[in-house]
Design a protein around this nucleic acid. Sequence first.
DNA 1: CACACTAGTTTCGTTTCGATACTATCCGTG
DNA 2: CACGGATAGTATCGAAACGAAACTAGTGTG
Lengths: 202, 202
Amino acid sequence: MGSKVTSTDEIAELLVYLGRAARGVDTGSNLTSAQWTALRFFARANGISRTPSAFASFHATTRGTASQTIKSLLAKGYLARCDAADDKRSVRYDLTDAGTQVMCGDPLRELSDAIHRLDAGLKSALRLALPALVGQLADIRDTVAFGTCADCRHFSGGGATGYCACVAAELAPADLGRLCISFAAIQDRTLVLGGADKRKTT
Amino acid sequence: MGSKVTSTDEIAELLVYLGRAARGVDTGSNLTSAQWTALRFFARANGISRTPSAFASFHATTRGTASQTIKSLLAKGYLARCDAADDKRSVRYDLTDAGTQVMCGDPLRELSDAIHRLDAGLKSALRLALPALVGQLADIRDTVAFGTCADCRHFSGGGATGYCACVAAELAPADLGRLCISFAAIQDRTLVLGGADKRKTT
DNA sequence: CACACTAGTTTCGTTTCGATACTATCCGTG
DNA sequence: CACGGATAGTATCGAAACGAAACTAGTGTG
């Protein structure tokens, strides 16, 4: 094989291309690409997911590297250490006010603008297809996926609040719709392999 | 300001996430992420686009870095220097047999598989939405976009052959459907999902 | 309580990448 | 034709990003 190019391959290429192009140009506040990804993650993840380990698996890197990235953001004053969990090993990082401030200059905004300009049909198609794709990929790799409650198998109930079968509790409105490390994609397919919670961190 | 999260932002995040996750695990043939991207590009670009400069703008990097990546692939014997243009400054690189061989182990295959498993409707939606998105992004940034003839404004005529208004000539079948540096996106694409509203597997 | 395991951090060496400078070639203008 | 200015490609260097490994500390299971 190798020489036959299907539309599937083309889609894959475009995804990689967009993912790289999305890094954009850093205007002003000089953060590196990794730092932006981290800041974005901590801005968007729910309480139980704002940890170095969770960010490491989200960013597909090691915990050591993740720790370094976080440290640099701490030094800049954009993140604050905030350990308030029952597990004393665990550390939670929150965005500071300066952190939320600087997020306004996120270079990803360019990509958001481009998406915003898309035809509404195309946009909602993306809104459906991409989470599904993330789920498929995580399934193939047998790794953790990330996603938000709306696409999560653990979630039930709609409206302003809802129930998460994973933490076994009603969700705070603030955490609803945020990135979650315990996310498990809803699969259209019937071939789902069993485990609801498959985690693997090296 | 920055705290309201729209579905647009979610899409952008997912694209970045997928783009990074798509790097996959390198099985066997140890090429770096940049080297894979280069190899993929030279495998998929048409004649006038297989140059260091074109790759540099495709990969959103500098010509110097692009040159280095290419050099490493030359050393491995996956690319061959092949300057046959009228412009003596310009250099064209082609994949060697070993290069096409090694492309079979492309880690991007995992992502392709994931796409392949998607519902057909979602997949064709991606096939429409992503090129449009690339076009919008290039438009906002005022940079070059990359794409294939099917989505290109310069292209007309269908079937096995077609006319490219940019090179002002009929295209060789081999170059039809390959990446082109002179690509210009068709702007107003809308999603027309046929009557078959798909929700199920296969 | 011993053992295995996980969370987080630090250190170190490799690799990668961007900025810069340099050469060769093309092209337009007088 | 000569002379700039622009463009294609390359080489060099320093900063950073990253992965691997070692280390500390807390958890939980037998």
